[in-house]
Design a protein around this nucleic acid. Structure first.
Lengths: 124, 124
DNA sequence: TTAACATATCATAATATCATGATATGACAA
DNA sequence: TTGTCATATCATGATATTATGATATGTTAA
């Protein structure tokens, strides 16, 4: 094993079909760059929490104030408010102040689409 | 508001509009149940990691074997293999054995749709 | 003013997730 | 057989995320 240096693993992997090198260089050119993957994973991370999904689900039906969300989900106000902050920070929900209330809604249709396609996927 | 007879927190929250009670009971009926939110959040959690997103991005272009994925992303085999296991376990990718190689592909079009709508969302 | 209410933020302990080294499996060739 | 390659699994320390109690902010009514 000592003469088999692994620092250049391309050389000793997967050489059964010599097309692999071409395949790799071709697909490499067509993917987004590091910063976009990073941003996108932060975005999707938001959907990876049941409380946030419940809020998204509610807001896909209609706009709601914080206390209605708390009540509909039977969650305490701190939890909901914290998750709304995260949703806001990630551009998934927006809100309008109405007196002492805050009325939340989904930012755009992308959010609803992603939620619904995901739901469809797990239900089939 | 003559006779407050409800025992829970409804009574002292958000009574400015008396429609709130109706709103809450209406939207409550229209959301999935706990287990579906739980399953759906597990599903979306998978998209919340840049390495897995990169793999999904590659496989949305074409089917690839593990070593090609490693090479295209410049990641070690353990990392890729572990993430593929997670992707498999969550029904996001599938694979076919071809000799000693494993050729991976996306499970269905839902995966590609979610990935692309997400990308569109962060790019606008 | 003051009190009550709706919402937001901070701090934190429990829990989950990450990349990766070590190691195992299974296929093929010599 | 034995060795090598392609891939999978296990174990783990570092890091991130969770729900929630305590507390703060801002609005309205009395």
């Amino acid at each position: 094993m000592e003469n088999n240096n692994l620092e250049n693993k391309n050389d000793d992997m997967c050489e059964i079909f010599d097309s692999h090198e071409d395949v790799v260089s071709r697909v490499k050119k067509r993917i987004p760059d590091e910063s976009e993957f990073s941003e996108l994973s932060e975005f999707f991370k938001i959907f990876g929490n049941p409380t946030r999904l419940k809020i998204i689900s509610l807001l896909s039906i209609e706009d709601l104030c914080v206390c209605d969300i708390c009540e509909a989900l039977d969650l305490n106000q701190t939890t909901v408010s914290n998750q709304l902050r995260i949703l806001r920070a990630n551009n998934i929900v927006k809100y309008k102040k109405e007196g002492k209330m805050a009325r939340y809604s989904l930012t755009d249709l992308h959010i609803e689409m992603i939620y619904k396609v995901g739901l469809e996927h797990i239900l089939e």
